[in-house]
Amino acid sequence: MYIIQTIINGLLLGGVYALLGVGMTMIFGIVKLTNLAHGEFIVLGAYLSVVLAPMLGIDPVLTLFVSVPLMFLAGFLLQYFLIGKAMKKGNEPALLVTFGLSIILQDVMLLIFSADAQHINTSYAVASIRIGELEISVLNIVLFIISISAITALSAFLKYTHTGRAIRATADDTDAAALTGVSVKKVYAIAMGISMASAALAGLCVGMKWTFYPSSGGSYLLIAFVVVVIGGLGSVPGTLIAGILFGMAQVIGGANYGLLISYIMLLIVLIVKPKGIFGK
């Protein structure tokens, strides 16, 4: 029974870990950029929900209707006016600009929200469903539903819409995409917008599950990295599988060894298959 319980918990949390990685993997795959500020984007998303929920007097989950568009816009503008400019100077300058952004964001959040631990409270935070001897937390189910529907929606968007096709084409070959009439600059901005929007979702999820601080970005970024590299850069389904593997490792390893297990997992993947399980 314990084993089944663990597997279910790992699976449910795996959705959240995949969500942490999915925004990062998009930027890797499409913009070909390592976004070191992604962790701070996630924390920013969490704070947005913390602020918006009491302000609008709604359930934290519903704040997504405000925070997701807001973060999309921020990502779009950020890429269009700042990161895109840095990318013209080369890969490393762009990497360092995102690094700069990460430390700026971290301290701006520290100034606004102080270093106190934060948590997004919901009425169902401690509720659980009993099935036979299994006890499944309602919160975990909510998180899983949010994550999986977001990732499914993103996959469908990439697959079936004009913009989605343009994004995939740009990821494949930027010059050829430009020759079919795609504005690469705009596609990059949209990709960053989506990435930040996914960070809003991920932020809400981690904020409901765990406590967070302005300085939590680093650890989220690292989780995102691990998930993304295990899954293969730029692969959305790979990210989902990797997220679930990561979730299992966390649940099995517990608070002390969970992270360590996943780091070791990552290093093994890197040695055996340096481009990730689903990498090409």
Binding site: L82, K85, A86, K89, P93, L96, V97, F99, G100, L101, S102, I103, I104, Q106, D107, V108, L111
Partner: peptide, 13 residues
């Protein structure tokens, strides 16, 4: 760090 970050970004650009 905010100021260090801004300086770094400006210098890179």
């Amino acid at each position: 760090n905010i100021i260090l970050g801004i300086i770094t970004i400006l210098v890179i650009l």
